[in-house]
Design a protein around this nucleic acid. Sequence first.
DNA 1: AGAATATATGAACATCTGTTCATATGTACG
DNA 2: CGTACATATGAACAGATGTTCATATATTCT
Lengths: 117, 117
Amino acid sequence: MVELDKCEINCIHEEAVKAVRQALFDEDVAASLAELFKALGDPTRVKILFSLMTRELCVCDLTAVIGISESAVSHQLKILRTLRLVKFRREGKVLYYSLDDDHIEKLFAQGLEHVTE
Amino acid sequence: MVELDKCEINCIHEEAVKAVRQALFDEDVAASLAELFKALGDPTRVKILFSLMTRELCVCDLTAVIGISESAVSHQLKILRTLRLVKFRREGKVLYYSLDDDHIEKLFAQGLEHVTE
DNA sequence: AGAATATATGAACATCTGTTCATATGTACG
DNA sequence: CGTACATATGAACAGATGTTCATATATTCT
């Protein structure tokens, strides 16, 4: 408390803080954005999404491509579904998953630019 | 094992799997990409980065804008620094942080599009 | 209806993550 | 040189996360 007060006098750029605070979006939006990025922040999910960028695939295909258990894939697909990153269609017993929109490809492209530079 | 074999005969689209596997980037790249997104996948770090989109700020300013402890901010800044998402310059006792490149703004814009649609 | 298959789901568990608290570092200034 | 201040860092701890294992659901075929 005391230190913060001192700090507000000596160090903080009050106007700047005020301005930035105003520009700062809602707590909710920050949370949603973080949630989205967090979903993209796991190697398994990255591989799933990247695989789906090529074409739609069933769960079994994904399991084979990525090389982890079917259950693990299924759990991750649920997360991706919840965030509307993937969608699926049923054909008999088989579920075909695909990307829900094209934002993901753009996000990946943008991310790769940062990583590979 | 047995189940997988069965699955490869009955369910898997072999050519598809092969093709996707080939297109799939290295394990390393997937890991890097996931690491980057994971860094963006935390509310505190989202707020820090978003604040820095407006202008450079010292640690103390960030603490005030975001409303969490200085130590927490500092720890998160270290993560962002490691991933080359932010950089800083020193002016006396004060460190001014800013975004390291403009990819972040693009990533955020793209992410917001998905979130707010 | 019952067996087989593709996928989903819940619980359990080990690991990872973010914050806090205490302490260290670096810089300015008297 | 010692004090004050801005920031960094390490250890500790609670809560979150991803996988595995066992089981459930949905669909097809007989």
